[in-house]
Write a protein that binds this DNA or RNA. Structure first.
Length: 153
DNA sequence: GCCAACGTTGGC
DNA sequence: GCCAACGTTGGC
């Protein structure tokens, strides 16, 4: 089993939205590296750090899990939709998405600042300068450490 | 709102 | 295949 960090802007879709919905489809990823992680490596049961990007402060807001493995991002087929991409067809889909289920919300958000200042999290991808990847693998140790910082479970 | 860092596109 | 121009991400 692998661990992941997935970014979402809370003004678009937050951990509270996921708690309400229980499950959501993770459409709109339009980056090849992120797509490959979702399509090739994500498995049902993998745990996800739900990260609030473009927020004040940005940080990890809670936990999700993969409940459905990659399938074609059908928003890419919808003309006039902002995720439409004419290069992607149902015969030969270019973009993929997974479904993410709600697991838990942190009592307090673990901010990017805290993450950067935590010795045990040295080298974590999300703290690297200019890390824009919206789907990132994370080591189990780092994952667990962030849960511990959040006093989660 | 600014802008640095990055990924993608397209002319050559 | 290079690389300038462009668009986007996301912290600040």
């Amino acid at each position: 089993m692998q661990h992941w960090l997935m970014k979402s802007e809370p003004t678009v879709y937050s951990i509270d939205d996921l708690e309400r919905d229980k499950v959501t489809s993770w459409e709109g990823v339009r980056n090849y590296q992120a797509r490959n992680f979702m399509r090739d490596d994500m498995q049902i049961g993998d745990l996800v750090l739900f990260y609030h990007s473009n927020a004040s402060p940005p940080g990890v807001a809670g936990i999700g899990k993969i409940v459905r493995e990659a399938y074609p991002d059908n928003f890419a087929f919808k003309k006039d939709h902002k995720y439409y991409d004419s290069r992607s067809t149902s015969e030969k889909p270019l973009w993929f998405m997974v479904d993410v289920g709600f697991v838990g919300k942190f009592k307090n958000l673990i901010s990017l600042d805290q993450i950067k200042n935590e010795k045990a999290l040295e080298g974590i991808m999300v703290a690297k300068k200019g890390s824009r990847l919206s789907v990132q693998p994370i080591s189990e140790a780092h994952f667990k450490h962030i849960c511990k910082m959040a006093d989660y479970k």
